[in-house]
Amino acid sequence: MDLGPYLLLASMEGAVQAAVLALTAVGLSLVFGVMRVVNVAHGEFFMLGAVLAWWIAHMVGGHPSIGFMVALIIAPVLTGLVASVIDLTILKRLNYDPESTIVATIGILYILQQLVLMTYGADARPVEAPFNLRFYTPWFGYSYYKLAVIAAAIAVLLGVWLVMSKTRIGLILRATQLDSEIAQAFGIAVNKVYAIVFGAGAALAALAAVLIVPIQQAHYLMGADPLLLSFIVVIIGGLGSLRGTVVAAVLIGMSDGIISVFFTPTLAKILATLLVALVLVFRPNGLFGARAA
């Protein structure tokens, strides 16, 4: 292939990456923005979504699209519930103290990961895509499902934006984000808001995982990469800014896809990791954020 089609393929792959990454990272950003909590276990909620999707699709049977659609709804809801319970039983009792929450979520990371290893096993398992159509450019064939992933991610992100900016729920969330004490004084049940936000953040990660699981397989260690990438995205986008997060996700996802075409994956990862670390060092508020964390 010539360079042109090669680049086209790379950017299409990058766009799928970016779509999934944006969903995952917005979940992390939402939790950080509203609760000021760094959730190190976020990648495990992603993994939980994928593993639950496999289980649900496996149990439902019938045409792959039925199992997938059921998983698309139930896996994020279940993951969200798990996260809310974790918030109420552990994080709330820590008073969301920054350092303790980081340590506790590291613990939760390993608990979830090992529990999945003990029940689901160490195998990587695929979920069948709901439909299996391809279209053909002059140079390569491409799956329609991947385009559907991008469309779905855009729809969900628009939904999140609408909820945050146009509804009463969004108003309550933004009030809590600005000043939780004043919000409480105005009769907002801040603890309830926190439990819901933590659950919603996890559900977004799980949703992203269900969307990607027909392309990548479900595996108990799959949470590490999304976690690191989400952190990168949230930081570069400016902590707590949803718009910045989406822009950064597109930037990182696309460039990750394109860089890995030209370099070996390991070298690409090394370069990307170092680059982002340096961005953090020299622009601690992110490339788009103006506010101090």
Partner: peptide, 28 residues
């Protein structure tokens, strides 16, 4: 010299990333 320009959460993540690139370099 690099990481200590950041504080708090950013410091945690920068050290995580430097360590990750050391690990990846060993593999590379």
């Amino acid at each position: 010299l690099l990481a200590l320009r950041t504080i708090g959460v950013a410091f945690m993540i920068v050290t995580l990333m430097f360590a990750q690139s050391v690990y990846l370099s060993i593999l590379y």
